[in-house]
Amino acid sequence: MFFCIIVQYSNAQSSFTILPLGVYGGSDESNLSAYLLAPRDSQNYICLDAGTIYDGLKAAHSKGFIKKNEADFFKENIKAYLISHGHLDHVAGMIINSPNDVKKNIYALPFCIDILKTKYFTWTSWANFANEGEQPALKKYTYNYLDTSKETLIENTSLFVKPFLLSHSAPGKSTAFLIRNNDDYFLYFGDTGDDAIEQSNNLKIVWNAVAPLLPAKKLKGISIECSYPDEQNDKQLFGHLKPDLLFKNLKELENLAGKNSLQNFPVIIAHIKPDGDNETLIHEELEKENTLNVKLIFPKQGEKINL
């Protein structure tokens, strides 16, 4: 038996509100990876990656999921950015909209901040709206260097984050963010390849860290990428996952957390590359291969998910 949810998923005892501003991994510049997240009953959101901002807010407003106009919500309710890596489909919305933004923090691992500082917020690519890098630094955004060894409070929210390093087409890097709200957690993955293909143990480290949270019912959901259908050759994945690799990894997590620990567990499927029939194939393959009986959630731009 499998569960496939393609509309808003709601949990009556939810701990987090997630508002997807962009859900795809390419081909549609108006709908690229960006997820707002806030504690339940809070309007203080963090932005997990920022490929698309304004088009996502317009979609959320038109569907009734936010009441404020887009410009005010953008300035007042998005309190910080957490950026997993420096690829354009994860940062373009933040960069393009930076002239109209207000002072905020950017949280990321050092490798990612270095990309923002030397490739994007420069006076050759764009104005430097950050507090470091090419001068003059306009200091609208403040870089906050995350450390994989500790948890960090996200200022202007009640949320904490612990980062994990991921491999994304080695030697490329990315990040997973474990977000804590009181005693509840949500795990967000930036782009990631499979450990065996990437010749790393980064995913194994993440699974070992979060496995104890499952039997304790403290992990409320995961957002993880599935960019290609199974027909994609492993050598052509470019640091991404496909359905069989995704379930291979979820089975590793279940082995650590205990049998049936993932039954009905919410898994948001992110970063689908919607070229051709990819999206349909990925949906079908995930449904067919879902022997773990997780709740598959296919997010829609501008539609809230409560976990």
Rank of each mutant, 00 (worst) to 15 (best):
Y9R: 04
S10M: 13
S14M: 08
S14P: 02
S15H: 04
S15I: 01
T17C: 09
P20V: 04
L21H: 03
E29V: 08
E29K: 10
N31C: 07
L32M: 06
A34W: 02
A34G: 02
Y35L: 08
R40K: 11
D41W: 07
S42L: 07
Q43P: 05
Y45Q: 01
I46F: 06
A50M: 03
G51R: 02
I53Q: 02
Y54H: 05
G56T: 00
A59C: 06
K67I: 05
N69G: 03
D72G: 04
D72H: 09
F73P: 01
I78L: 09
K79Q: 06
L82Y: 03
H90D: 04
V91I: 11
G93W: 03
M94A: 06
M94R: 04
I95P: 02
N97H: 12
S98P: 04
S98D: 02
P99H: 08
N100M: 14
K103Y: 05
F111N: 07
F111I: 08
C112R: 07
I113N: 06
I113G: 06
I113W: 10
I115E: 08
T118Y: 09
F121R: 07
E132D: 11
G133H: 13
G133V: 12
P136N: 12
L138I: 13
K140G: 10
K140Y: 08
K140V: 11
Y141V: 12
Y145H: 15
D147M: 13
S149Q: 15
K150H: 11
L153N: 14
N156L: 13
L159N: 05
F160M: 15
V161T: 09
V161D: 06
K162Q: 14
F164P: 00
S167G: 15
S169W: 07
A170T: 15
A170W: 07
K173S: 10
S174P: 05
T175C: 15
A176P: 06
F186R: 07
F189Y: 15
T192C: 15
A196M: 11
I197N: 10
E198L: 10
Q199A: 14
S200M: 10
S200L: 10
N201P: 05
N202W: 07
N202A: 14
N202T: 12
W207V: 01
N208M: 13
A209D: 03
V210E: 03
L213A: 11
L214D: 01
L219D: 00
L219K: 05
G221Y: 04
I222M: 13
S227C: 14
Y228L: 09
N233G: 11
N233R: 09
Q236Y: 09
F238M: 15
L245T: 00
L245E: 01
L246Y: 06
F247N: 00
K248N: 13
L250C: 08
A257D: 05
A257L: 10
Q263C: 13
A270L: 14
H271M: 14
I272Q: 01
I272T: 01
K273I: 07
P274H: 05
D275K: 08
G276L: 12
D277Y: 13
T280V: 11
L281T: 02
I282G: 04
H283E: 00
E287T: 04
E289Y: 00
E289I: 00
N290Y: 04
T291Y: 02
K295Q: 01
P299W: 01
Q301R: 03
G302Y: 03
E303H: 05
N306L: 11
